[in-house]
Nucleic acid binder design. Sequence first.
RNA 1: UGGGGUAUAGCCAAGUGGUAAGGCACCUGGUUUUGGUCCAGGCAUUCGGGAGUUCGAAUCUCUCUACCCCAGCCA
Length: 562
Amino acid sequence: MSQAEISAASNFIRTLIKQQREAGQQQKVVTRFPPEPNGYLHVGHAKSICLNFGIAEEFGGDCHLRFDDTNPEKESQVFIDAIQEDIRWLGFEWAGDVRFASNYFDQLYDWALHLIKAGKAYVCELDAEQMREYRGTLTEPGKNSPYRERSVEENLAEFEKMRAGDYPNGAKVLRAKIDMAAPNINLRDPILYRIRHQHHHQTGDRWCIYPSYDFTHGQSDAIEGITHSLCTLEFEDHRPLYEWFLENLPVPCKPVQTEFARLNLNYTVTSKRKLKLLVDEGIVDGWDDPRMPTISGMRRRGFTPKSIRDFCDLVGVNRAGGVVDINMLYFALRNDLEHNARRGMVVLNPLKIVITNWEEGREEILTSPSHPARDDLGERQLPFTRELFIDRNDFMEEPPKKFFRLAPGKEVRLRNAWVIRCDEVIKDDQGEIIELRCSYDPDTLGKNPEGRKVKGVVHWVSADKGVPAEVRLYDNLFQVETPDADKDKDFLEHLNPDSLSRVDAICEPSLAQAGAEDHFQFERVGYFCADRHDHQPENGKLVFNRTVSLKDSWAKMQKKQG
RNA sequence: UGGGGUAUAGCCAAGUGGUAAGGCACCUGGUUUUGGUCCAGGCAUUCGGGAGUUCGAAUCUCUCUACCCCAGCCA
């Protein structure tokens, strides 16, 4: 068996770069991933990371990590640290040191002066509300600010006062002088600098004016020698502005902005604002809650870096915004885990069975490969005793047709062990099944029984030797495909009440050796990951998170039959 | 009613004038000590609609329609 190889398909950006290289342009490719440190990275960012780092890798270039830190009110060191950890975990390394747009504040300030001197920027004193009125609407042009025609000298003096801290927050702004009647609203004298008496995580209290995104991004790209500035579609309208700054400023080079569609996944939300709300409202247990589509949440859930990278390759890159089926994510996940996760047997919903023809006190140690197709992963020992647990779902007193599991009088294979037959069902006073009396066929270890076919296989754990574990069963956080699509319904109304349930499970003894973040396939059940924080085998506390269930054609068949 | 975009199967997505790749999902069948994996097969007479150019159009032209983004001193 070999793992399905997934590689990135061709896309318009790769095609573009190849064409440029064939035409002899752009020999060196330099990209950048520019997160704002105001939240955790999510799958959507993974797409951008894979694209930017992937392009650089493919064409032998560099990819920079640059924090777009122009709004200190919302940013913090916590996010800066988390973002770096997530990128490294995903398997990427940026070229050179981590960069910050704030590294360029001095240069940006000089360039603002340059625009003022060229008569292309002015200090405006309209307040926020007036500014909105003057801006016009989508269909009506704006009108010029009364401050638009100030002299260069006055603008220089005013801007210097802004920088010196002579004015309170919001009192004045520096604006580019472009065209208040432009059909593209971004060109209606956009704001370059605003006053914010705010401590900055990188520059401390050195500045009380901060440049806007538009005035920062392209120039930062130019300073770093970025060749391809890849961003999402919503910045398309900003491209003329991006280019306007590069043309009107003495920048060292002119990067080109190219937009691609952001990733949307069904059954989840990928909006930083909404994810932050889930965290702040305590709906989930932090940014790395295993139900979160954040990189750190997915990591804790049990996704592997490769599965996320493969997923991004599977999805592709283009300009048509769509919604990707989360099954594609799960496919990439299972595809990786199937090949690389060790196997173990764990009973989530125990039902005791007694092997009546197995002597009291007798214990046999069976061995089984840790992976059916990977000898290099070694083997594990499975103690077999008179009393065992199987899953309640694997027994039915009155089984329907095609139920290949245990039922009164029926036989089933105990995975990695013998074939047993159910002889008797024991119930309590309430009629609840509490135990099954079975007998085993000693001639079926490692071979099929003679003269009959036993179709079903069931997993089990020794009642004496099994070890208890807390197992957290995770499911989609939302129960509808597009939780944020309704205009009149809050996305929180679509939360899946069963996104998390906990069960006390019994594991085969080998699982007591599991280290945090180890991945397993619990045979016949699903893929699980030892919790990064709460799994403490040294204290006898085992905690596993369900990453994703195995495909279940039996469940599908039952569902279809109603 | 302004500007900018996007339409190829249920979903993602190649394709750039020569007769619709691939993947997910789904459906058949086979193998199997995981109802998993794996293997074999099926799944668009047609590319948002219409008209036109052409020997030939998903690709070019015109037109219509639908959907997405933009009126933060957020990014």
